[in-house]
């Protein structure tokens, strides 16, 4: 898994609340059997006109926000379908961080497995970050996972929560499967004592 420690970038603002994974990547792009090219399909229906040309008023087509590695998103980002294609599309496009006040559970879990850091901030900080993208779109902020802080252009910083396990995995680029495989003995013991379910006995 991609390692994550520190990133300095300006933010692309997408204030809509309850952005669902069908918007992040529509179902018609889910027929792929690999992870290639998902960034092209990111927000496809909001980003492109029916003829494939870019919609000029969508944030990802705005020249001010080209190259942003941080997506500043509205409340409850990533609700709906469990498709991991959503974080694949976001990282494929170049995002490494999404900041919001809340994330849907499955999206959050999928993001952490793909080196995409979901950061939860309080409503006041959230609003001030949106203000910043309006007043100074090129202003950079620094996300430091080790310190669990977001440093703002005025020198102040806000801290964000993350569970210690996910933090360690991201900092070291460790993937969870390797961790679970390390408990082979415990899993085998559990299987020996858990015979309630007869399927596959």
């Amino acid at each position: 898994m991609a390692q994550f420690s520190k990133i300095t970038s300006f933010m692309a603002p997408l204030p809509d609340e309850n952005v669902d994974t069908d918007q992040i990547i529509p179902a018609r792009y889910l027929k792929a059997i690999d992870k290639k090219g998902m960034g092209e399909a990111l927000f496809a229906d909001w980003r492109y006109n029916p003829d494939g040309s870019p919609k000029p008023d969508f944030v990802l087509n705005d020249s001010k926000f080209q190259g942003a590695q941080i997506l500043l998103a509205g409340d409850n980002f990533g609700c709906g379908s469990s498709r991991e294609h959503a974080p694949w599309a976001l990282t494929g496009f170049g995002f490494r961080v999404v900041i919001s006040t809340s994330f849907a559970d499955i999206f959050r879990s999928n993001s952490l497995k793909n080196g995409l850091l979901p950061i939860i901030v309080d409503a006041k900080t959230h609003e001030s970050l949106f203000d910043l993208t309006e007043e100074a779109p090129s202003a950079e902020i620094t996300v430091d996972l080790n310190d669990q802080t977001v440093r703002l252009p005025d020198g102040s910083s806000v801290s964000f929560p993350i569970d210690p396990f996910s933090k360690t995995c991201l900092l070291n680029g460790v993937d969870e499967l390797g961790y679970i495989l390390g408990f082979e003995k415990e899993i085998t013991e559990f299987e020996g004592s858990n015979k309630k379910y007869l399927i596959g006995k």
């Binding site: 469990s82 498709r83 991991e84 974080p87 499955i106 879990s109 999928n110 497995k113 793909n114 993937d175 969870e176 499967l177 679970i180 495989l181 899993i187």
Partner: peptide
């Protein structure tokens, strides 16, 4: 998600 599908398949 698909990463977890892999986890369950393997473990």
């Amino acid at each position: 998600g698909t990463s977890e599908v892999e986890h369950v398949l393997a473990t």
